[in-house]
């Protein structure tokens, strides 16, 4: 089921965040108000709200879900139901960098498992586990929609890294250890390569839209 990655899930864990930490800044509050305006009913804003909370807190324990629900003025149970339905909302604490290695369908037959196992050996953890320094979590992901550039992985619900090889994994891991997020990679269409001599976009290197990954470590 698309709920909790198969892990045992405690409904009433000890709160991770204190009430001092559980506040939204005025910017975040106005963003929430903006989400409410995007939908005819307040419930529509719940997914955007949970995304914002996850970017702030790193994951969504019950107290954070309650905070979002209260902010949007919707029942906690409704928000909890939504948060536990979707794979990308983390219900448990993860590493700073969550490496979602796709092993589904095209990636399975194009070496996705080789990459997953290489990464597991390299970091000394199994899929689903977090490394001791709290830096990396490895997960086996379902199809991420980049089958033409298999095998691939995604970093913390954000950046895609395409056409993986073992050396590419090596440099990725050392870059991430230095806090360096890889640049956005635009997969060139084969027809563009033939007809236009390469990628049709020339602004790929200058793309700086994507924000930094979740900041779970700031609360430790």
């Amino acid at each position: 089921m698309a709920t909790n990655n198969g892990a045992q899930f405690n409904r009433h864990p000890e709160p991770t965040f204190s009430s001092d930490q559980l506040v939204f800044t005025s910017d975040e509050k106005s963003a929430m108000q903006g989400y409410l305006e995007m939908y005819p009913e307040p419930e529509g804003a719940i997914m955007r709200g949970l995304w914002l909370a996850q970017e702030k807190f790193g994951f969504l324990p019950p107290e954070v879900i309650r905070l979002v629900a209260d902010e949007l003025g919707i029942p906690y149970a409704r928000a909890y139901g939504v948060a536990t339905f979707y794979t990308q909302y983390f219900k448990q604490k993860k590493g700073t960098y969550v490496l979602d290695v796709c092993t589904c369908f095209s990636c399975q037959v194009c070496g996705g498992y080789d990459i997953l196992h290489y990464l597991e050996d390299k970091l000394g953890i199994k899929a689903g586990e977090t490394s001791e320094d709290g830096l990396f979590t490895i997960q086996e992901a379902e199809c991420l929609g980049a089958c033409g550039s298999a095998p691939m992985l995604q970093i913390t619900n954000g950046r895609y890294v395409h056409n993986l090889t073992e050396s590419k994994v090596d440099s990725l891991v050392s870059d991430l250890k230095d806090g360096k997020m890889p640049a956005f990679e635009s997969v060139t269409l084969p027809q563009d390569e033939t007809e236009m001599g390469g990628n049709r976009r020339d602004d790929v290197e200058s793309l700086e839209y994507y924000k930094t990954p979740p900041v779970a470590e700031t609360f430790e």
């Binding site: 939908y39 419930e43 719940i46 955007r48 919707i74 939504v82 909302y89």
Partner: peptide, 27 residues
């Protein structure tokens, strides 16, 4: 035009499920 960001559920590609997801329900 409002962009709605999903959160990782294959079933949301089904049209009625997508609508429930938009409405802020389980999809």
């Amino acid at each position: 035009v409002v962009i709605h960001k999903g959160a990782g559920a294959y079933i949301c590609g089904e049209e009625t499920s997508l609508m429930n997801s938009l409405e802020g329900k389980r999809a």
